[in-house]
Amino acid sequence: MTEQTTGTPEGLLDDWMPRQELAGIIGVSSDTLKRWETRRIGPPCIRIGRKVLYRRGAVKDWLLEQESRKAGPRARSAR
């Protein structure tokens, strides 16, 4: 098995991204993601020491869940 310059096996963390990267992608600050994690309202994450990582698939699922939450109440109130 080859290793990248970080010393981790190649491909091991390919599906994961750090908090700062996700913050840039979805247009919020790292502090906002940290606050969401504390309140358990943000995308699921894992911690490895001080490093916080988000799995890309879990973030996509979370985004879809947010979309359906927004659509649900509107659909009920639009009678």
Rank of each mutant, 00 (worst) to 15 (best):
Q66D: 01
Q20T: 14
R56A: 09
W16R: 08
I25N: 02
R55Q: 11
L12G: 01
I48M: 10
R56P: 00
D61C: 01
I26P: 01
S30C: 01
R56I: 13
T2Y: 09
G49W: 07
T5F: 13
G24P: 02
K70D: 05
V28D: 04
K34R: 15
K34D: 06
G57H: 04
T38Y: 13
V59D: 00
A75V: 09
G7M: 08
I25F: 12
E37F: 01
K60H: 05
K70M: 07
A71E: 12
A23K: 07
I25T: 10
R69E: 11
G57P: 02
I41E: 12
D15I: 07
A23V: 05
I41L: 07
T8F: 13
W36I: 01
T32V: 08
I48R: 14
M17F: 12
D15V: 06
Y54Q: 05
R69D: 08
V52W: 02
R79V: 11
R55S: 02
L64I: 05
Q66S: 06
G49P: 03
G42H: 02
W36V: 01
L64V: 03
P18S: 01
R50N: 14
G27H: 05
G57M: 05
I46W: 02
R74D: 03
V59C: 01
K34S: 13
V52T: 14
R55Y: 06
C45D: 00
L63I: 11
G42V: 04
D15A: 15
T8S: 09
Q20K: 15
M17E: 08
G11T: 07
K34M: 05
L12C: 08
G7E: 09
S77P: 15
W16G: 01
P43L: 01
M1T: 12
R74Y: 03
P18W: 00
D15W: 12
W16S: 02
P18K: 10
T2S: 14
E65H: 08
R35A: 13
W16T: 02
E65A: 15
R39W: 05
P43W: 01
V52S: 09
S68C: 07
R50I: 06
W16H: 14
I41K: 07
L33Y: 05
R76V: 13
L64A: 08
R40E: 11
T38V: 13
